[in-house]
């Protein structure tokens, strides 16, 4: 909403997209969950290249999954690829919709990466 308080017209409605497809923000499928779990294991084991590989594989299956972009951002941050990490986190935000926790995490990562 405009913060100026100059007008508060009741008839002006912020709409959701008229044709928002149902698959825009799907729950991750079984395949992606499995690949995320694998990536998490690899990340824990310090195999960051492999972890990124698993996440990229998952992103080919669900390219609009904000959580995957967020995970990949974290892996790249760990690899000290800061500007890539920031772009990935921003990308995650662009799909995050109404997910304040994910947004906050992305914003924090962007802040650290650009610091």
């Amino acid at each position: 909403m405009p913060s100026s308080g100059r007008y508060q017209p009741p008839e002006i409605i912020a709409y959701r997209e008229p044709v928002t497809p149902s698959h825009a923000r799907p729950a991750p499928g079984r395949a992606v969950r499995a690949l995320m779990a694998r990536a998490a294991q690899q990340e824990q084991a310090g195999e960051l290249v492999a972890a990124a590989g698993s996440l990229e594989r998952a992103l080919r299956i669900e390219p609009k999954n904000p959580e995957l972009w967020n995970r990949l951002a974290h892996v790249r941050y760990k690899q000290k690829q800061y500007s890539l990490a920031a772009s990935l986190a921003a990308k995650s935000n662009s799909f995050a919709g109404q997910d304040p926790a994910l947004r906050a995490d992305n914003d924090a990562l962007i802040g650290r990466a650009r610091y």
């Binding site: 008839e11 002006i12 912020a14 709409y15 997209e17 825009a24 923000r25 935000n93």
Partner: peptide, 28 residues
């Protein structure tokens, strides 16, 4: 293909306008 499925980013709002002038309008 899959439909485009554009997701409006956070800073996007939809507003009723008059298509000719671009002035504020309303659904009715």
């Amino acid at each position: 293909p899959q439909p485009l499925g554009l997701l409006p980013p956070e800073d996007i709002v939809y507003i009723w306008v008059d298509p000719q002038t671009g002035y504020l309008s309303a659904e009715h």
